[in-house]
Design a protein around this nucleic acid. Structure first.
Length: 199
DNA sequence: TACGTGACGGTTGAT
DNA sequence: TAATCAACCGTCACG
């Protein structure tokens, strides 16, 4: 494998960025060609993408209905959801002499958190510092973007991966640039009818 | 030859 | 602010 700066060249001569998802238009092309009936090996050769990658993308598509890459990065889902934070604050307001470990046990006892989702003592202390240390809690916008570990659909990335019935990709895709329209399999199949020539 | 899969080295973002 | 961790990525090699 040849490396040129941040991008490398694979065995087929294609350029790729190690660790980063393939550009959206390449992913789309893979799907298009597959829908046209091209074999993965043909797609691989034509687009200069490794057959393993083609295989993965198509397998993912059949599984999830999406050709979008998954969400890269991030750590384990948060346990300190707004609900948990409010409860902790509530406990502390009711009884200011409560220890963090006691709050922890109450969260478990009251069924707010499962045992494996309980925030650590240090987390509870941090939450108390943040929420009781100032009159207004910090902006929890980010917390509400993704479901937390103990909530349903945790880390399903439903905000990023459309379902089978919804558009195949969203406009939030970084590779799309200013693309406005959302597409669906039907769109692609229509495209197939209109555009018979494949390069 | 075609394909699925696991190992690997890399990137990313939350904690 | 930097380090750590755990998710994901695409390539490669093997069967």
């Amino acid at each position: 494998m040849i490396s040129r700066g941040h991008s490398s060249i694979n065995q087929l001569g294609g350029i790729f960025a190690n660790g980063k998802p393939l550009p959206f238009h390449i992913r789309l092309r893979i799907l298009e060609l597959a829908l046209f009936g091209y074999r993965p090996c043909d797609i691989s050769r034509q687009l200069l993408v490794s057959h393993g990658c083609v295989s993965k993308i198509l397998a993912r598509f059949t599984e999830t209905g999406s050709i979008l890459p998954g969400a890269i990065g991030g750590s384990k889902p948060r346990v300190s959801t707004p609900l948990v934070i409010n409860k902790i604050r509530q406990y502390k307001e009711q009884n200011s002499s409560l220890f963090a470990w006691e709050i922890r046990e109450r969260l478990l006892y009251d069924g707010i958190c499962a045992r494996d989702c309980l925030p650590s003592v240090s987390s509870i202390n941090r939450i108390l510092r943040r929420t009781l240390g100032r009159s207004k809690p910090r902006n929890h916008f980010r917390h509400t973007l993704k479901p937390a570990a103990c909530e349903p659909d945790a880390r399903t990335r439903s905000d990023q991966e459309p379902s089978q019935t919804s558009p195949v990709w969203s406009t939030s895709d970084p590779h799309q640039g200013t693309r406005k329209a959302a597409f669906s399999i039907r769109d692609i199949l229509n495209l197939k009818e209109e555009n018979n020539e494949i390069k």
